[in-house]
């Protein structure tokens, strides 16, 4: 991992079109500004990882187990109730 020391107000350029700026720092947190093209998705990493985990779990559910749950759902919950 590349490690750089930056002060508040300074920034880092990644490639030719991504700039990460340190806007504010305190003992507890850093406020970071990110300038990147729209095509570059920016996420909080722990949230991205949570979504990855959920998606993998959702595809793992796509088995007979999910089919069974759906069968049960059809019997117990009429589909027209879903719209309140």
């Amino acid at each position: 991992m590349l490690i750089l020391t930056r002060k508040s107000g300074e920034s880092i350029r990644i490639g030719n079109n991504i700039v990460i700026s340190i806007l504010e720092s305190s003992s507890r947190y850093l406020k970071i500004g990110i300038d990147a093209p729209k095509s570059v998705a920016v996420y909080r990493n722990e949230i991205y990882e949570k979504i990855q985990e959920q998606n993998r779990a959702a595809t793992a559910s796509t088995t007979a187990q999910l089919g069974n749950a759906l069968q049960g759902f059809k019997k117990s919950k009429p589909q027209d109730k879903i719209e309140e």
């Binding site: 998705a41 991205y48 979504i51 990855q52 985990e53 959920q54 998606n55 993998r56 595809t59 796509t62 088995t63 007979a64 999910l66 089919g67 069974n68 759906l70 069968q71």
Partner: peptide, 21 residues
């Protein structure tokens, strides 16, 4: 889903893929 038939209605291109995939 246990062989439930599926009627497709839309092709979708996920630009960034799906997190995890």
């Amino acid at each position: 889903f246990g062989g439930i038939p599926m009627t497709t209605f839309k092709n979708i291109e996920l630009i960034n893929g799906l997190p995890g995939f």
